[in-house]
């Protein structure tokens, strides 16, 4: 197939767009073994998320230099916001704000991969199941892996508990980093707590439709689909200094070492959260 000749900028853009469609329609693109489709992510998903990131949440990034320019690393953040938009915004931050334009490979709960459409989008955008074999495989492949150890306890916590880190599961993420000898980069995300302030949870309804919780916010479900619009809070994403895990390499199977390191990461993120919150006195500042 030949690339058609082009004359000027407009023609070039039209030609590039058509070439993109041609590649998509004929299946001539690469997907990695996890199902990550870099072309689709860069050309379709990220431009949409970028609007939310820049215009709606006016996100600012602090100390992005702490993110390694190459090699595997485990990015660990606080989780909040009822819907896991913080994970998506963090992936935009890693790609757009870092000079190496790194793709963040997110980890999701099995519930994400159970749902039709959601599972498809998650895999195509580079996410995979939060399980140690996948994390270690990604880290060995020198990828940047994003994990939120609070899980549903974090996203589904009530508004009164905002910016209070919840318990960190069993610390499986720590043993993956130890086993692969990759650094842990702590991240504090400020802003996601205010997008859907969670007032309550209708548990029977959640059980009925098979989701971890059924949120009640000031706008949802009262305003119907309009209640799905996130509140335009001001976001700050701060990357902490990488924690070298190689000194603990022998302790990957030692629960005490794993637990202590997980606790250290948790404390670091909590401190970073408090400091970053002071930079943003008004949650809805410009």
């Amino acid at each position: 197939m030949t690339v058609p000749e082009v004359d000027d900028e407009f023609d070039e853009r039209v030609a590039a767009g058509l070439a993109f469609l041609r590649r998509r329609l004929s299946g001539q693109y690469q997907v990695d073994e996890f199902g990550f489709d870099p072309e689709l992510t860069e050309q379709v998903f990220q431009p949409v998320l970028r609007q939310l990131y820049r215009r709606w949440f006016r996100t600012e990034v602090i100390d992005v230099k702490n993110l390694p320019a190459e090699g595997g690393a485990l990015v660990v953040g606080n989780h909040s916001g009822t819907v896991a938009l913080d994970a998506l915004m963090l992936s935009v931050a890693c790609h757009d704000e870092h000079p190496a334009h790194r793709h963040l490979r997110l980890l999701g709960a099995d519930f994400v991969f159970r749902m039709p459409f959601v599972s498809e989008l998650a895999r195509k955008s580079g996410a995979t199941l939060a399980c140690n074999p996948d994390v270690e495989r990604l880290l060995h492949a020198e990828e940047l892996v994003g994990v939120f150890p609070e899980g549903f306890k974090g996203v589904g916590k009530r508004f009164v508990d905002r910016y209070k880190l919840q318990r960190f599961g069993r610390g499986g993420f720590v043993s993956a980093a130890l086993r692969t000898g990759k650094p842990i980069v702590p991240v504090a995300i400020v802003g996601a707590e205010e997008i859907y302030p969670l007032l309550g949870n209708i548990k029977p309804l959640a059980r009925l439709i098979g989701v971890p919780y059924f949120p009640v916010t000031p706008t949802f479900p009262w305003l119907g689909p309009l209640g799905l619009v996130p509140l335009p809070s001001k976001w700050l994403i701060r990357f902490g200094e990488p924690i070298d895990t190689t000194p603990y390499a022998d302790g990957a199977d030692d629960p005490a070492v794993v637990f202590n390191l997980a606790d250290q990461v948790r404390e670091t993120i909590q401190t970073m959260l408090h400091e970053t919150l002071e930079l943003r006195p008004d949650p809805f500042a410009a």
Binding site: L129, P133, R137
Partner: peptide, 8 residues
């Protein structure tokens, strides 16, 4: 749905 992405 709880399987890893790649089986060894």
């Amino acid at each position: 749905f709880r399987d890893p992405a790649v089986f060894t």
